[in-house]
Design a protein around this nucleic acid. Structure first.
Length: 370
DNA sequence: GATACGTGGAA
DNA sequence: TTTCCAAGTAT
């Protein structure tokens, strides 16, 4: 009688994979800043903020940014009321800056459409800016315990190994989503999703998975085949093209540096940058780069260059520096910023590298660096 | 469906 | 040094 009311032990031969995994999760869950205490539901705003930050980004990198954002904007209404440029400067260094713009737009939409409370509905979440199929399912499951089935890179890997799916990604996504949904329990769907992610992050890792510690190892086809690290199969990636350019570092006698704002679409949209030539393929370098300088000056090429790898190309930037008198006015579209005020700017990592290369210290202050 | 979109750490 | 990758989304 009573034993039918107790959770099945992990060794129960008729336990489902979800039951086995949840039992493992109850003993091995990671403690993360955005997670609630065991048995409690996390704040939807915390789940939202962490999920956006964690897109294609490591837990380690997100940590300080999550804390900084939560301190500065404790509620979604606070975030919605913030100026976009403050959100961008707080995000600087974390990458994929469209996320920050969408984060802000989403906060405003939650206030406008939903009275400042995240909807407990996967489809309504999916309609918000920056929230796609993964994030809507993750928030629904984790914040509201709705039996949704988020599929991130971890879960793709775990599921593709459990079933030894030979179809390469991204073609296999449909099958993986179906398999993941079939595993998802009606109860504790949020814990199940986080358990799958924890398993993928700590046991079922991309390289050298620790199958000997895996709670699902008895039911894993890839493990049975002896080749877990072969999954998921992926289509080969194309090589990154190289681009090159020259950054113009104008330094005023009072120490201020000449900067400008990038266009609000495309790469590093709306972020602050050191003015430069266009970034082009090596064979298309402008004949007279000085024509692209923001103002007339005695430009001197600094030794070395700044190398930075974006998602889809590698950038090799030379830095030319010029010293200007203290009263020099900023050309149209440009502005002077003292290093002490860099913290107010949305300076992406590549531009901090340019500033450091050009001998401007104080350029290394981001949430990441702190 | 393919491509654009950052960054820094690990092997 | 090079490659891969980390809780994806928008177009």
């Amino acid at each position: 009688m009573t034993e039918t009311l107790s959770p099945r032990p992990q060794t129960d031969p008729i336990a489902t994979p979800a039951e086995t995994l949840l039992a493992w999760y109850d003993r091995n869950r990671r403690r993360l800043p955005w997670r609630a205490e065991p048995g409690r539901r996390a704040d939807p705003y915390h789940v939202f903020l962490s999920e956006i930050m964690l897109q294609q980004t490591t837990v380690k990198a997100v940590g300080p940014y999550f804390s900084a954002f939560l301190t500065r904007w404790p509620t979604v209404a606070d975030l919605a009321a913030a100026p976009l440029d403050q959100v961008l400067s707080a995000w600087a260094g974390l990458g994929y800056y469209a996320r920050a713009r969408n984060l802000h737009a989403c906060a405003k939409a939650v206030v406008a459409r939903h009275g400042g409370r995240f909807p407990a509905d996967e489809a309504a979440l999916r309609d918000l800016p920056g929230i796609g199929p993964y994030t809507s399912a993750a928030i629904a499951a984790i914040a509201f315990d709705i039996p949704a089935s988020p599929v991130d890179g971890n879960i793709e890997r775990v599921v593709s190994r459990l079933h030894a799916i030979a179809t390469p990604l991204p073609k296999a996504k449909t099958e993986i989503r179906q398999r993941a949904a079939a595993l998802t329990p009606r109860l504790r769907a949020g814990d199940f999703a986080q358990a799958m992610m924890d398993l993928g992050a700590t046991i079922c890792t991309p390289r050298s998975p620790v199958c000997g510690l895996c709670p699902l190892d008895a039911g894993c086809t890839a493990r049975a085949l002896g080749t877990p690290s072969l999954y998921p199969v992926k289509t080969p990636k194309t090589a990154k093209p190289a681009r090159t350019g020259i950054a113009f570092l104008a330094v005023r006698a009072d120490g201020a540096v000449l900067l400008r704002t990038r266009p609000d679409t495309g790469l590093l949209a709306g972020m602050t940058e050191v003015p430069s030539t266009p970034w082009s393929r090596a064979e298309e370098v402008p004949a007279s780069p000085a024509a692209h300088a923001p103002l007339p000056a005695t430009w001197r090429a600094l030794p070395g260059q700044v190398l930075h790898v974006f998602t889809h190309f590698a950038l090799d930037l030379a830095v030319w520096r010029a010293e200007l008198p203290a009263q020099t006015a900023a050309p149209t579209g440009h502005f002077w910023v003292r290093p002490a005020d860099f913290g107010t700017q949305a300076l992406p990592s590549v531009m901090r590298k340019v500033l450091v290369h050009g001998g401007i210290q104080a350029a290394i202050t981001t949430s990441r660096a702190r």
